[in-house]
Nucleic acid binder design. Structure first.
Length: 644
DNA sequence: TAAGTCACG
DNA sequence: ACGTACGTGACTTAT
């Protein structure tokens, strides 16, 4: 179970010889990206997979893992939700080709050792710092073992994170890794458990099949480590990213996921009542304005009403050629017609209702009474995290209505919420990387950066900058981070493309360091095929030399953006590691709950508030010394909205 | 399962 | 001539 962070996909069905497991010699000539494993074993690797069903056999394996330098550990479970599922079995591998599976909770009426007895036998080793462990996505196994009262320690390596550090743009599930690095095809989860409505859980799989699948996981993971780790070890920068950032961040993330966050469901419920009523009212109005009932949630039907029946002008089209009805279009149409504005209102509320107001209370874990998100550490190509099930990195904040949802994220009794966010982190990183004199100066002086940009661009004194000028500068600053084009800037400011180009030219004239950096990044990306963050995280751009102009330009924009977004991701990961260590070293009751790219949210007992407020900003700013000062702003409140 | 839309940084 | 700001996840409809 969980050979990746998600569900196994693309499983070829119908391979019968699951139990038969001596695999034919595989492609040995495929050159490996790193050159380190080019010399793939050309002989068949014999597989000795055993099912541990007796005390003697368990003792034999305990001796093996006690003596091993590095052991691969993998847990099998009843599902994917790490905070809820039950442990079904454990597989171990210490040498390539040799692995075992210890069934613990199969329901197939086959002989297996007592689960709690086995766990008590394994617990000292699992909790030992000295005995080093390896796995594929160990954050998952940490949770599973934690559910059994075991704290997994001695975590040395994770092949998911190795692959992510080496090639963040590729897939990191075990099947893909085995194909890519070993030229091996692994047993797909669907082959073992089926798929769709017929899918069974792993505890229902017979022990022979389960052993071949589970032991293979451990074995393949060990071999993947041998294939990938040398490439990391040989590169000082990548080793830093892996060893000092990704591996320790895994622990902080596991703790945060387990901490969860308290939701005021009653508050959301009463909000849901109000919003529900308003949706009904809006629906009625919209149908009256349209002259007929239709499904307001269907862009297709909206299009038929607006552009067919009512003959409103088509503002833009979607990638597939249909007339777009997105927010920008409806906003434009709303200037002249009443219906689009009502549809916008409806859409906004419907989004809040279904995605947040109704969903969040359903995500409360009955055991903990809290909501536990899942952080994917190897999804975003730039090094950022991704949050899902539920996504707590996109809780509304930009509208009044939306912020009410934030109010439902509350601290437990006796505690407060503390939010700490890096101010203008990506622009500061741009200043650092580009070493642009006036940008560095503005940050050093602690100026309002958008205002400072406006003053430079419009040739006015800092205190003479109008709000309009500042707004323009802000959009331009965002554009810089995104690898702005004149087209993008124009559409964002609602101005002519030529005017946008003028602004861009003016900006680069005022900030030549930034101009150089942008040009240099494009050249370097093209030459090397990748760009790097300040800490040396490598971001590959496979389309940077594409013959397709669109794709190439897309890659160029990504090349501009990635070092800034990625360095920010590195920084906050370092901050999370530092904060979690500090919490543990000081035996605090304070817990870190959320990370939202440039923000950390903590739940802090009143008694610890002063201490946290004193140290948190330094912990976060102290993780790196850049050419610009880092600034962290801290807020406190009874809920997330107040703290933010 | 894809497309469209929209929530966040 | 064409279509573009960077990075995510989730919900809904429609196929």
């Amino acid at each position: 179970m969980d050979r990746q962070q998600g569900i196994s996909k693309d499983a070829p069905i119908g391979k019968a010889e699951v139990a038969e497991k001596t695999v034919a010699p595989t492609n040995v000539t495929t050159p490996d990206l790193f050159g380190f494993v080019a010399e793939r074993s050309s002989q068949v690797i014999e597989r000795r997979y055993s099912c541990v069903q007796t005390e003697a056999e368990l003792d034999r394996w305990i001796q093996k893992i006690e003596a091993a330098k590095l052991t691969c550990v993998d847990t099998e479970t009843t599902g994917l939700d790490a905070m809820r599922v039950d442990l079904v079995g454990i597989s171990l591998a210490v040498e390539v080709g040799e692995a075992c599976y210890i069934p613990l909770a199969h329901t197939t009426n086959e002989e297996q050792l007592d689960k709690s007895w086995v766990l008590s036998k394994l617990k000292p080793w699992l909790e030992s710092e000295q005995h080093l462990k390896l796995g594929q996505n160990l954050k998952y196994d940490i949770h599973i073992l934690n559910n059994c009262g075991i704290q997994l320690r001695g975590i040395a390596h994770d092949t998911l994170l190795q692959s992510y550090v080496l090639e963040s743009h590729l897939s990191h599930d075990m099947d893909s890794l085995a194909t890519r690095h070993l030229g091996e095809k692994t047993i797909a989860y669907e082959e073992v458990c089926g798929k769709g409505a017929h899918q069974i859980t792993f505890d229902q799989v017979n022990l022979e099949t389960a052993t071949q699948y589970a032991a293979e996981d451990a074995d393949i993971t060990l071999r993947l480590h041998h294939a990938m780790y040398p490439a990391i070890e040989a590169d000082k920068k990548l080793l830093t990213i892996y060893q000092d950032i990704e591996m320790p961040a895994m622990h902080a993330l596991a703790v945060m996921e387990r901490n969860g966050i308290l939701i005021d469901s009653a508050k959301l419920s009463s909000q849901g009542q109000m919003v529900g009523q308003r949706l009904l009212d809006l629906e009625k109005q919209i149908h009256e304005l349209a002259g007929q009932p239709f499904n307001i949630q269907s862009p297709k039907q909206i299009g038929e009403i607006l552009f067919g029946k009512l003959e409103l002008p088509i503002i833009k089209k979607t990638p597939s050629g249909a007339p777009s009805t997105d927010e920008e279009v409806l906003q434009k149409l709303a200037e002249n017609y009443p219906l689009p504005a009502r549809i916008l209102d409806y859409r906004g509320l419907a989004k809040l209702q279904s995605t947040y107001i109704e969903k969040l209370p359903r995500m409360v874990n009955p055991k903990t009474g809290r909501v536990h998100t899942s952080y994917s550490q190897a999804v975003a190509v730039t090094g950022r995290l991704a949050s899902s099930d539920p996504n707590l990195q996109n809780i509304p904040v930009r509208t009044e209505e939306g912020r009410k949802i934030r109010e439902a994220f509350v601290a437990k009794p006796g505690s407060v919420m503390v939010s700490a966010d890096y101010s203008q982190i990506e622009l500061r990183i741009m200043a650092h990387i580009a070493e642009d004199e006036s940008l560095l100066k503005a940050f050093a002086a602690g100026e309002d950066i958008h205002k400072a940009t406006a003053a430079e661009m419009f040739h006015v004194d800092l205190n003479q900058v109008s709000s309009e000028q500042r707004r323009y500068a802000k959009v331009i600053n965002f554009g810089l981070i995104y690898g702005m084009s004149a087209f993008g800037l124009a559409s964002n400011l609602g101005i002519e493309r030529s005017a946008a180009q003028q602004y861009i030219d003016t900006y680069f004239a005022r900030y030549p360091g930034v101009a150089d950096y942008m040009a240099q990044t494009r050249v370097q990306a093209k030459e090397r095929g990748y760009v790097e963050t300040v800490f040396g995280r490598r971001l590959w751009l496979p389309e940077i030399r594409s013959n397709n102009g669109m794709r190439r330009q897309g890659a160029e924009r990504a090349a501009i953006n990635a070092p800034m977004q990625g360095t920010a991701a590195d920084l906050i990961k370092l901050a999370m590691i530092a904060v979690q260590r500090w919490i543990e070293q000081n035996h605090l009751e304070t817990s870190m709950l959320l990370q939202v790219h440039d923000e950390l949210v903590l739940e802090v007992p009143q008694s610890e508030l002063a201490f946290v407020q004193e140290h948190l900003p330094q912990l976060m700013t102290g993780v790196a010394k850049l050419k610009v000062p880092l600034l962290v702003e801290v807020g406190v409140g009874s809920n997330w909205e107040e703290a933010h």
